[in-house]
Write a protein that binds this DNA or RNA. Sequence first.
DNA 1: TAGGTGATCTTG
DNA 2: AAGATCACCTAT
Length: 202
Amino acid sequence: MKVTKKRLGRAFFQNPDVVEVAKSLLGKIICSNVDGKYCEAMITETEAYAGQNDKACHAHMGRFTKRTATMYEKGGTSYVYLCYGIHHLFNIVTNIEGKADAVLIRAIEPINGTAIMLERRKTTRLNPIVFSGPGKLTKALAIDKSLNALDLVYNDILYIADHNFIVNDIVKTTRIGIDYADEDALLPWRFYISGNKFVSQP
DNA sequence: TAGGTGATCTTG
DNA sequence: AAGATCACCTAT
């Protein structure tokens, strides 16, 4: 079978249904070209954050600050921020400009440049634990705040591609680490590829 | 299971 | 304006 590698364009990200985008991002490829080192990793786990109506979202009730401003950008923009003083978390903004929807990437599976990613994680063992968790994959892909608010559609440092991986079965669960969000903490908006070892909490 | 770490936001 | 909070990780 011919494998096509196609970069995702604006239309993919501007979908007004962030839950659908979170699901269709599973199996897609993150291409990172930081420090002249190129590597590719498949997205295995995501979470959807649905703008101002979602209590778990940074932009809940239209909250607009220096940090959350990026979430209001047009779909296809990167949203990277520091969490717990240590970890960079990588999100992809979706929907049109002004709508603060985003998808958090929670886990990846290395596809190309695995050695580079292992080195950045300071290990030699290819263990799923090394790449499953939002703070870990950013380290593996060298994503930090300097890559915030980047346009993933036109940039050559960081972008998303489709290698035509077929995702057969998607598991739906509740999102992690958002107990403060009351009833919205119960929404089944965390998705991962069924049977894939590279997820944070099977 | 506890503590580290620092930007962000303030009786989540 | 200082302190609580926080979409987490690593090591004991």
